[in-house]
Simulated scan of single mutants.
Amino acid sequence: MSLADLRGSLPEYAKDLRLNLDSVLTEGGAPGLTQKQIAVIALASAIASRYEPLTEAVAEEAAKHASAEELNGARAAAAIMGMNNVYYRFLHLVGDEEYSTLRAGLRMNVMANPGGDKIDFELASLAVSAINGCGKCLESHEKTLRKHGLSAQPIQSAVRIASVVHAVAVALEQAKAAG
């Protein structure tokens, strides 16, 4: 099923999501981001949202704007943040500083060489961290993006993409379950 088909299958109560999806997946609706960055962020967000039909449709659309290597960078961001968001959210929520002194012992080599552009990987990691609710990772990726010269606008755009893609996944899954 294409992204247009999925968009059209959103129930009437999710009309705002349909309109927002049309918007945030364009450069005009995601200020500060290129179409390639939008594609990478959308794919990582769809993977993190865990609704396979949406992931497949977003991947098909993303392939029009990003190379296979860049799309694998999005997949890498979703994968590594799936691990990091759980671990670092634990550190944050437990609040016991002793855990921060312990070695994490988790391999994260992909963060140094994500296969695509480092900024795109950071934007995708930020988006996935927003979906997964990890404040520590959000803070870290936002600071890294700012150090690389990004303003608030493209960072906000990345999180807006994540929020809409995630909400679309939730609505589509609910509509499927309701029959």
Rank of each mutant, 00 (worst) to 15 (best):
T101W: 08
E173I: 06
A171N: 11
L172M: 10
A124H: 02
Y87Q: 09
L43W: 02
V110N: 10
E142R: 07
L126R: 00
D5Y: 08
G179A: 12
R107C: 12
T101I: 04
A74F: 02
L102R: 15
V94Y: 04
A169I: 12
G135C: 04
H92E: 15
A76N: 14
Y51N: 05
D22C: 03
P53C: 14
A42V: 12
E60I: 00
P114S: 13
A78E: 06
R75C: 10
A112E: 14
I38T: 09
E56T: 11
M1F: 07
N72R: 12
L123I: 04
A48C: 03
N72P: 02
L33V: 13
Q153M: 11
G32W: 08
L126G: 01
A4S: 12
L54I: 15
L54F: 15
I119S: 04
L6Y: 12
P154G: 09
K36T: 09
I41V: 14
A178T: 08
V94Q: 07
G115M: 06
V159N: 04
M81H: 02
N113F: 10
H141N: 10
R18V: 07
E70Q: 10
M81L: 08
I80F: 03
S9G: 05
N132Q: 02
S157Y: 06
E97K: 10
E97D: 12
S9Y: 06
M1N: 07
A59Q: 09
T101D: 12
E61S: 01
D117L: 01
R18Y: 08
I80P: 01
P11W: 04
N85I: 10
Q156A: 04
E61P: 00
S151L: 05
S67H: 09
F121L: 14
N113T: 13
A127G: 10
L33C: 10
L172V: 12
R107A: 15
G8L: 08
R50L: 03
V110C: 08
E69R: 11
D22S: 09
Y13S: 15
L145R: 02
P53W: 11
K15I: 09
Q156D: 02
N72W: 08
C134T: 02
C137T: 05
V128H: 00
A158G: 08
I119L: 08
Y13A: 13
G32H: 13
V58T: 00
C137V: 03
R7Y: 07
K64I: 01
R75D: 11
R18N: 13
A78W: 06
A171S: 13
I80L: 06
T34Q: 06
A74C: 05
F90K: 04
N113V: 12
K143P: 06
L150T: 05
A57Y: 00
A178V: 12
R103N: 13
A39R: 00
F121A: 14
G115Q: 07
Q35L: 05
A66Q: 02
A59G: 10
L71P: 06
S151P: 00
V164C: 11
C137E: 11
L3F: 07
P53S: 10
S157G: 14
A76H: 10
I119R: 11
L3C: 03
G105S: 10
N84I: 03
E27D: 07
L172N: 09
S125F: 07
S100N: 15
A177H: 01
S157K: 01
A162K: 00
A76W: 04
V164I: 15
L25H: 04
E142G: 02
I155Q: 09
R160M: 00
